[in-house]
Computed example of a mutant assay.
Amino acid sequence: MIDIVSYRIRIGMYHKGKRTMTKHNCNGKSYGKLPIGFSCALRVAIFCAITLLILAGDVESNPGPRPTGGTQTRQSTLDEIAREPTLKDILKQMHDMNEEIQQSIAKNTIEVSNKVDNLNRKIDSLNQRLKDIEEENKQIRADNIYLQKQMDIVEAQSRRNNLVFYGFTEEEKETWEISEQKVRNFITDKLGLNAESIAIERAHRINTKTNPRPIIAKFANYKEKENILKESRLLQQKRRKKQNYRKDEHRSVSEDFTRRVRTIRNKLQPKIKEAIENKKRFRLRYDKLIIEGEAFTYNIEKEELVKL
């Protein structure tokens, strides 16, 4: 029989209010002294482990808890990560892309360069053509000016026997005979010439907007026409010397010039007024103004006064 004290000592109970140490035997062998409390806890743990093993049964029939969805997701994520390209692959792809881009840029550069060369050749061709056209235009303008001058000469030849009379009052429904008689009266009364001996082929009003309209008269003899023009110029010089003269005396005679010459003579009027104010001697001959030996004309194309 084992007394209660020995039983308590064996199972690790406290004895007499103190923790005691005991020897544990296994098959009659001693393993040294262990704390009584530890020995009790060890026994409880062993008991629990054996109970769990009995409850678990066979491993094949009870393999354990089934894998959850989270585990499958993690596995698939790991698989995807494994399938992702590595840094080396990425660098290789970037290198290949860079080579493709460089090749494309080089190809496009060559194409653009060829197009630019073609455009430059076309531009050079157009510039040369433009220069040729400009030269042709210059020649055409020069020829046009020459032809215009030749036409003016021919037209002037047809007008060489004409004189234009300004400042003569105009009657209503005035006939050519009336206009001619007014010219003859002026030649006789103001110029002091024998108008009856002067042959006038025709005399009539010119269709202009001025009032009164001037009278153009064509003389049969060129010398008689020049004599009338000379006397009319002397008359104008006498009038300039007068301080005042009657309005009805403000009549003048000029040659019948072409439209171009009339335009030039009108443009020379400011220069004539300047010469008169400065009391300089001048002559206006055809399309030229001569002031004390210096000749001037007006360039219609350039619209400027030219000193000859």
Score class of each variant (00 low, 15 high):
193 L>A: 01
140 I>L: 10
300 I>Y: 10
235 L>H: 13
97 M>G: 03
12 G>L: 02
80 E>A: 12
185 N>K: 10
116 V>R: 08
226 E>T: 05
102 Q>R: 12
292 E>F: 00
214 P>D: 10
260 R>G: 01
231 E>T: 05
215 I>Q: 01
38 F>S: 13
94 M>Q: 13
251 R>H: 05
106 A>Y: 10
63 P>S: 05
132 D>G: 08
99 E>W: 13
160 R>P: 03
62 N>Y: 10
220 A>Y: 06
54 I>S: 09
303 E>C: 07
244 N>H: 14
132 D>K: 10
159 R>T: 04
72 Q>L: 15
221 N>T: 05
224 E>I: 07
298 Y>H: 02
190 K>W: 02
165 F>L: 09
270 P>C: 03
101 I>F: 12
109 T>Q: 15
184 R>G: 10
114 N>F: 13
207 N>G: 07
138 K>L: 14
39 S>I: 09
166 Y>E: 05
200 I>N: 04
165 F>D: 02
33 K>M: 14
302 K>A: 09
182 K>D: 02
60 E>Y: 13
274 E>W: 01
21 M>C: 03
191 L>E: 02
18 K>M: 07
100 E>W: 00
208 T>P: 06
174 E>I: 05
65 P>E: 10
135 E>P: 00
49 A>N: 09
17 G>W: 03
217 A>G: 00
146 Y>M: 06
183 V>D: 08
254 S>N: 03
78 L>P: 08
52 L>D: 03
49 A>E: 11
282 F>Y: 10
73 T>C: 15
